[in-house]
């Protein structure tokens, strides 16, 4: 407590000392102390693994007589990439998946947040129900949905046949429908993530602003368009950013639902990286692929930064 109010250090000290001390204990020191725990966590727990990863990405590693031996190969992993039958397909599927789920979940999450922020009596019901999908482990979500999708004993087929549908869809067994089936599950699972962030954003808007809009005679839709949306824009973009990274890493859910099939219809890059890393134990290539995917994610990050700058300029 009171870190910021410690008296400034004795001015008779050497200039350099004063600077250093005032930085640590002076009036502005709170900003350093507040950041310090994070820095400690980052340095202790992530610096070494990240450096290792960077080193691995330019090496070939192998166990020889019980020792992990590493050999520098520079950009040699590009060769492996050229020979990889799956990486390209998996990356393409991942991009389709990411763009689809981020857009759908952003729109539905936003609509839900706006709608639920307006309810009173049933609000608590809505808020609790929406959290539920997030509390189920992805393995179980994948399993339960694959059971519902199953053509031979699944719920959807049973219902559709009862309703007289002659050729019910094959869902995850149909190469054209598999990725869509996977996206449906993801939307069910992760829309709540977007909802929670956006609801917090809406609740942070000072009520006076909305009141003012209403006094001006704005309709609901206009209030959303001209008051809520501009204020919410940064929050929406941050939510999209976080969700994008998460969607790139989608794994357990698809692994259980389709294992990447039928054919290569639902191969995604994180599953491939896991296989390269764990089953094939090609640490170097796995590290290289991880960095490559991170580069793709940074393209999205750059886009969100650009969008937020444009929006800030437009809405002032």
């Amino acid at each position: 407590m009171g870190l910021g109010t410690l008296p400034p250090p004795d001015s008779s000290g050497r200039l350099k000392g004063v600077n250093w001390r005032s930085r640590l204990f002076g009036a502005g020191s709170f900003k350093l102390w507040a950041l310090l725990p994070l820095l400690v966590v980052l340095v202790i727990f992530t610096l070494l693994p990240i450096l290792q990863l960077l080193q691995m990405s330019v090496s070939e590693l192998e166990f020889v007589e019980g020792e992990l031996v590493s050999e520098f190969i520079g950009l040699g992993q590009l060769d492996n990439l050229a020979k990889d039958p799956i990486a390209g397909i998996a990356l393409k599927n991942t991009l389709v998946f990411v763009v689809a789920v981020v857009i759908i979940e952003t729109v539905t999450g936003f609509c839900l947040a706006v709608a639920i922020s307006r309810t009173k009596t049933l609000s608590i019901l809505y808020r609790s129900v929406v959290i539920i999908p997030l509390l189920i482990p992805p393995v179980a979500i994948g399993t339960m949905w694959s059971l519902m999708y199953d053509y031979n004993y699944g719920l959807f087929t049973t219902i559709l046949i009862e309703l007289g549908v002659q050729y019910p869809p094959l869902w995850t067994a149909d190469p054209d429908l598999a990725l869509i089936s996977v996206i449906i599950v993801d939307v069910w699972h992760w829309t709540s993530f977007m909802f929670l962030i956006m609801l917090a954003g809406i609740e942070s808007i000072p009520p006076s602003l909305l009141e003012a809009a209403r006094v001006d005679g704005a309709t609901e839709l206009r209030a959303i368009r001209y008051v809520i949306l501009p204020i919410m824009a940064p929050t929406i973009l941050v939510a999209m950013l976080l969700r994008t990274i998460l969607a790139f890493k989608v794994f357990d859910q698809i692994f259980v639902l389709t294992s990447g099939g039928p054919g290569t219809a639902t191969q995604v890059i994180s599953m491939h990286i896991y296989k390269v890393f764990s089953e094939q134990f090609r640490l170097g290539y796995a590290a290289f692929l991880s960095l490559m995917v991170a580069a793709f994610m940074f393209i999205f990050v750059a886009f969100y930064l650009w969008a937020s700058r444009v929006l800030r300029r437009r809405f002032g």
């Binding site: 992530t46 990240i50 990863l53 990274i245 790139f248 896991y274 991170a294």
Partner: peptide, 11 residues
């Protein structure tokens, strides 16, 4: 962001 982007298995 970089930590978040890495596949968790590397840790």
């Amino acid at each position: 962001l970089f930590i978040n982007m890495m596949p968790p298995i590397v840790f």
